[in-house]
């Protein structure tokens, strides 16, 4: 069953179309890698889903519900942004409590697996202003998974994380998929994420060039790795 559906999505910033005519559906229980060159429209697509950007045309549906002014649909969405910035004077513990409060969750219902797995349980009293970039990313990952989302959006999730923590986060994403969740990941580090991805959405100049299973991409291109397969696919002008 489709959990996220983009229908004719377009976004224009003044005269520039950042996205144009994107039709795509993402299913429950799959991981989709959204890739493309810098400025291709990946982040804008994700922001349309999160309600951060209002599409100029088209619609987005999440579990059948139209993305609009009602924020309730975001209850089931977890988001790990590329840049994590938090109120500097709060402690990690206070931030976790704040976000739990805002989502209206009980302490018992939240998933704190990553707090321990990423070693944040020993740092809950630390002020956010004193954290390194990598630790901020860990906090961001915890926040994304904590509400047990059915849709997870991760923007460059492994950037800034040490290899062990990156693996922990990606394993958690795989576990979410196993439980029927939909995971969307944007990343430039193809090698790191390709083992996890079921399908790849390639966006260029605001248009979706293709949305295909990883296996099919490798099969069509005759390559063994995505990094080698993509140039072949693009030169063959692959279509969805």
């Amino acid at each position: 069953m489709d959990s996220v559906v983009f229908e004719g999505i377009g976004k224009r910033y003044r005269s520039l179309w950042a996205l144009r005519g994107v039709d795509a559906a993402f299913r429950q229980g799959e991981v989709v890698m959204v890739i493309g060159p810098n400025g291709s429209g990946k982040t804008t697509l994700i922001k349309c889903l999160l309600g951060l950007v209002r599409p100029s045309e088209g619609t987005v549906r999440v579990n059948g519900q139209l993305v609009g002014s009602d924020p309730a649909y975001r209850q089931r969405i977890g988001y790990m942004p590329q840049i994590s910035q938090f109120p500097p004077a709060l402690t990690i513990g206070q931030l976790l409590e704040m976000m739990r409060d805002i989502r209206g969750l009980d302490a018992e219902t939240v998933d704190d697996t990553l707090v321990g797995a990423l070693g944040l349980d020993r740092q809950l009293e630390k002020r956010l202003s004193t954290l390194s970039g990598g630790t901020c990313q860990k906090v961001s990952a915890v926040l994304a998974f904590r509400s047990r989302p059915s849709i997870l959006v991760m923007d460059e999730p492994t950037a800034g994380l040490d290899p062990l923590s990156a693996r922990t986060v990606l394993d958690q994403a795989a576990a979410l998929r196993s439980n029927g969740g939909t995971v969307l990941i944007t990343s430039h580090l193809l090698e790191e994420v390709e083992t996890l991805a079921d399908r790849v959405a390639y966006i260029e100049d605001g248009r979706l060039r293709f949305l295909l299973p990883v296996k099919e991409i490798l099969q069509r291109s005759g390559a063994t790795r995505l990094a080698q397969a993509l140039p072949v696919m693009l030169s063959n002008s692959a279509t969805p």
């Binding site: 309600g51 924020p71 209850q75 942004p81 910035q85 938090f86 109120p87 209206g104 926040l143």
Partner: peptide, 15 residues
């Protein structure tokens, strides 16, 4: 606090 405002805006609360 723009990035944090963005993080708040993806929570299930009204802007």
């Amino acid at each position: 606090t723009q990035e944090f405002t963005q993080l708040l805006a993806v929570q299930p609360i009204r802007r």
